[in-house]
Design a protein around this nucleic acid. Sequence first.
DNA 1: CGTGACTTTGACCAGTTGGTCAAATCCAAC
DNA 2: GTTGGATTTGACCAACTGGTCAAAGTCACG
Lengths: 204, 204
Amino acid sequence: MLNERSPTRIQKKNRAAILEAALEVFSAHGFRGATVDQIANQAGLSKPNLLYYFPSKDAMFTALLSELLDTWLDPMREIDASGDPLEEILAYVQRKLQMSRDYPRESRLFANEIVQGAPRMLDALSTDLRDLLQEKEAVLQGWMAAGKINQTHPKHLMFSIWALTQHYADFDVQVRMLMGPEDPFDAAPEFLETLYRRMLTPKS
Amino acid sequence: MLNERSPTRIQKKNRAAILEAALEVFSAHGFRGATVDQIANQAGLSKPNLLYYFPSKDAMFTALLSELLDTWLDPMREIDASGDPLEEILAYVQRKLQMSRDYPRESRLFANEIVQGAPRMLDALSTDLRDLLQEKEAVLQGWMAAGKINQTHPKHLMFSIWALTQHYADFDVQVRMLMGPEDPFDAAPEFLETLYRRMLTPKS
DNA sequence: CGTGACTTTGACCAGTTGGTCAAATCCAAC
DNA sequence: GTTGGATTTGACCAACTGGTCAAAGTCACG
């Protein structure tokens, strides 16, 4: 039996290897499209051995999610209500874009799930994400009321940032196919900065 | 045997029912997540009967794609090089947004495929979409050179329109979960119009 | 009607998949 | 090095999946 109290050296190593492999496979094929065999292969372990560490495919997925969600939401947490409004938002956009560049698999994992109705994720999202959004929405509204940034719908503003930044990870194949040899991430930062600067800079 | 020359009344009806069911199921679960049985059920036919009309699950998916891609690209085709630049782009954004509202399943079908690397779709995209984008990119560049709209990266501008509008269909569950009872499509048109108006209106 | 083509289906098949289990092997601490 | 728990695995299973097929049923039309 697996002892969860004090993980051994081997447990730590294998658990990490499995989650890394699960991220690779789940993000590329979605939950149903991924097979335990694939993950086992990717992790360099046998299938029964995987199921020694995680009782089921579902458990692997759930564990992976709860490990990633926190990191995924970090860029939004860092938005500082006491900073300069426009610069805070622009910095957030750049952090999100950087996440798409550095962690595209994580982005696709979430995208896969949400597109299919988030059957295994809605609970987590409807607590963590909902609360965090509500908090930052209030911050945005404060900035708008103070005339620091243009008036607009705060929720849609956040959606737009998610959509624009994650697009480069989630639709990577399409973007690269259409851009040829040019790296999408070369021009994206400047494009998004310009977009949100024009959108939000107060008319004064 | 199935006679493809002159479809009978029954052939027309069943083919349509199958493609409608396939859209429903493929868009909700992705290609691999969908089962032929599910589609048969949804269409009100038996599984062998489905396979009488389409030789394989793959053929169903391919047929569905080639039927939808044209419609999907229509809003972009309608961009008129001789129209008013800013209004043409704003109208395009609204058409795309309307597509997300009226045909969310189609949007999710494409999203599902592309997120997973578009294994069955890249060919179609890399001809039809690539050509169309190249054409409209030239139009945008003309408008920018003439000072009719602000200078910006035309490809990223198009990507941003796709990302923002399709987000409302593809991430529907997340958006609705965060917006509560309010309909996302109430405020989205105005938000996007404002966004692109501020982005593109020349500084003069 | 009757007849030939079109349509539908129950039974079936081989391959895949998530998961089990008992036995074997490994490892750390005494 | 012995021992007891931790780890690994080959063999296996039931459910599911895409697809086949021969036989039965239905339809249009002369």
